[in-house]
Amino acid sequence: LEARLEQANLLKKVVDAIKDLVQDCNFDCNDSGIALQAMDNSHVALVSMMLKAESFSPFRCDRNIALGINLSSLMKVLRCAQNEDILTLKADDAPDVVNLVFESSESDRLSEYDIKLMDIDQEHLGIPETEYSATISMPAAEFQRICRDLIALSESVAIEATKEGVKFSCSGDIGNGAVTLRSHTNVEKPELNVDIALSEPVALTFSLKYLVNFCKASGLSGTVKLCLSSEVPLLVEYTLASNSYLRFYLAPKIGD
């Protein structure tokens, strides 16, 4: 494997966003790119990352390899990179280590680190193609704000999408709270758009603790996409350049 990222910052942000949810995971490398899929310890949430080969320049992977990496170790090393550094990941065919090289484009500084790899026996889950009842795209910062505000009142949020809009509501010991967003197009600032595509109304309840955790990815993309269908996990997607993505799935809370 040899994969060169124009900005080390991208990988730093991705790992920073998921490191509290998953600790050890395999980075599956093949000629289409670098993928990661892992459940959190409680098996409530699933992280799915895809860094497409096109996100790297150049990208070369001659043989499929799984790099088992402890994310807190990876984060320690990524913190040694300047945000603007060029990052090159390298690994042999049957690697014991993954090699990270950081190059500054402005100075002649070159730093090099090896991280010991782990043997991780990870379950891989098949995620079915789903036609979601509601797909909401909104500013990532807005979603983060709503989750942070509501977790002050309750541990769960009900997300209800109707033709009127999308309503995030919660109730807790001190009282209730709700935030409603309607579809909204801002010609001057398209990054503030809220788009709600609905095939049928849907209402589901989720743990806010996980949603707040997913929102650590807000720095990766201006927009977040929420996809909901009755009684299936919520998909929270942050789209990256070159069709790469960071997706989180969260199992709902069901029944009374």
């Binding site: 459940m39 949430a45 889950l125 743990s207 069901i254 029944g255």
Partner: peptide, 14 residues
Amino acid sequence: AKKQQSISTFFAKT
């Protein structure tokens, strides 16, 4: 109260 579901209830092992 509502019960937290597990992700593996929805996505099967491959």
